[in-house]
Amino acid sequence: MLRVEHLTKVYPNGTVALRDISFEVSDGEFLVVIGLSGSGKSTLLRCINRLIEPTSGKIYWNDIDITNASPSEVRRIRRQIGMIFQQFNLVKRSSVLTNVLSGRLGYANPWLSLLGVWPAEDRQKALRALERVGIADKANQRADTLSGGQQQRVGIARALMQDPRLLLADEPVASLDPVLAHSILQYLEQLNKEGVTIICSLHFLDLVHRYATRVIGLKDGVKVFDGLPTEIDRARFKEIYGEEAQEVRAASL
């Protein structure tokens, strides 16, 4: 279970990205975070694994205080929390296999991993992860030779290596066309059914309706909605997205 209490993030330049956010996520939920660009979605997700330091407030992960954890504790917490990104964030010049293996770094022997030495079981696990996302044949290719959809699958395979109990997905399909978007989100749905809690930011209302078990709406860093996807009708959507709602809706079709 994840508990966020009075989370506030103020960037050094004075931008208030998150304002007193509180919510809880139970195990097994597929939580979708929606909100306009700049509303604080990425900031919220990155505070959870402390890629960004919160300014104030608390985040508890199974009653461990993430916000107060020491660097080594943070690393131990992080390895149970997978993350995938809008820009995939693969190491472009490295092979697909190396990218996937890097998901295991939190568990690996620090010295051997620095030399690029991986136990056979980790390699097999990586190949299985690639098989699972349907691109085992690309294992030895350079990551930047893959298409966008394939790269995001490598991103998922990398997260799978962590045996995650929570998966953070920051607009995982915003750079992909709608058909690919569904194929990627179906992998997340599958993981969710296997018991992985998912927190995913999304832009498009139809995707929200299709995948979310619960929705949080952000506007200018403030939580303006917390409820079931079925509760979000056009009116609510407009409330969250403001006057641009129609356009966003149109773009999603």
Binding site: L51, F85, N89, S102, L114
Partner: peptide
């Protein structure tokens, strides 16, 4: 910085982030 962020998020330590995220670049 994207790959560095991604590798940090896996729980890798500083040296591992440099070896896997920075060196290949």
């Amino acid at each position: 910085t994207g790959p560095i962020e991604a590798i940090s998020a896996t729980g890798a330590n500083r040296a591992q982030v440099i070896m896997y995220g920075v060196v290949p670049q």
